[in-house]
Write a protein that binds this DNA or RNA. Structure first.
Length: 301
DNA sequence: GTTGAGCGTT
């Protein structure tokens, strides 16, 4: 048996992909996993019994049923206990899904503190290019003298690169430098970077503890707030704003209840006309009932 | 011609 391809799909109704077999007619699980990350096996629908059947798997090698793969479509098995979103994020757990979303999240400028006076933009570009593709670098200079002020900015193409760069110190031209999200991006002037989400369509039996337990799977939860009296929504604050923004727009199931996640908007301090709004108000209005102002602790960059 | 925590002329 030479150069055979078998048809494999995420789901019976999905478009199959052709996967190469080995010379002896077997298929390596690793070959399947290369196209379907996380795959742990294959199954297929028996044309006679109409039941699903598992494909024999021995030490990473998948064996054709009846020694012939035929033209059946084989369906990928994944480990149980995963979150199913019915998209491309199907077989990932929630944390991975958030990471995936984060990875396509737009990058932002990073401030570089502690640069040697002599460091040029070319020096910065050369250094940071070793981490990933660089979009721009700047060295801030005195407009009159042209001397460096000892700090600058850098921006990367990939969010992953940005995360890596933030996570460590940098030895640049003989000095240790720090790269951080600039205050202008993390401060109260940038509500878009909120770490707080609005959880709409809550039912009264969902407790703060249960919300915390549920949202923990996406990232560290720093606060949960349910307005009293009950108004069918809640606020959850994460340590990382990227987790919050990744969840916005999602419909999530908590205790069988479909809740809707949206951006928590800063509270208004104008407390006149808002007391006669009912439950189910829009997020922006509902956000007015929040009792805590946004905080941007300096402990978190 | 200096300096060493910070926060970006456009």
């Amino acid at each position: 048996m030479a150069e055979l391809y078998i048809r494999v799909a995420e789901d019976e109704n999905e478009e199959p992909m052709e996967i190469p077999s080995e010379d002896d007619g077997t298929v390596l699980l690793s070959t399947v996993a290369a196209q379907f990350p996380g795959a742990c096996g294959l199954r297929y629908r028996n044309p006679v019994s109409q039941c699903m059947r598992g494909v024999r798997l021995v030490e990473g090698i998948l064996h054709a049923p009846e020694n012939d793969w035929g033209s059946l479509v084989y369906v990928v098995n994944y480990p149980k206990g995963k979150v199913y979103n019915k998209r491309k994020m199907d077989e990932m757990d929630a944390a991975s899904a958030v990471k995936m979303k984060r990875s396509i999240e737009k990058t932002s400028d990073l401030i570089i503190l502690g640069l040697p006076w002599k460091t040029s933009e070319q020096d910065l570009k050369d250094y940071f290019a070793t981490f990933g593709e660089v979009i721009m670098v700047q060295v801030k200079r005195d407009v009159k003298t042209g001397n460096s002020k000892g700090f600058g900015f850098v921006r990367f193409t990939e969010y992953e690169t940005q995360s890596k760069v933030i996570s460590q110190r940098h030895m640049i031209d003989g000095r240790w430098c720090d790269c951080k999200l600039p205050n202008s991006k993390a401060g109260p002037d940038e509500p878009m970077r909120s770490r707080k989400i609005f959880v709409g369509r809550c039912t009264e039996d969902i407790t703060t503890d249960e919300l915390r337990q549920f949202f923990m799977q996406y990232g560290e939860v720093t606060d949960v707030f349910i307005p009293k009296p009950f108004r069918a929504f809640a606020f959850v604050t994460f340590a990382d704003d990227q987790v919050a923004s990744a969840l916005c727009g999602e419909d999530l199931i908590i205790k069988g209840v479909s809740v809707h996640i949206s951006n928590a908007e800063p509270k208004h301090n104008n407390s006149r006309q808002m007391m006669d709004r009912g439950a189910g108000a829009s997020p922006s209005l509902a956000a007015m009932f929040d009792q805590t102002q946004y905080q941007y602790p300096s402990s978190h960059v």
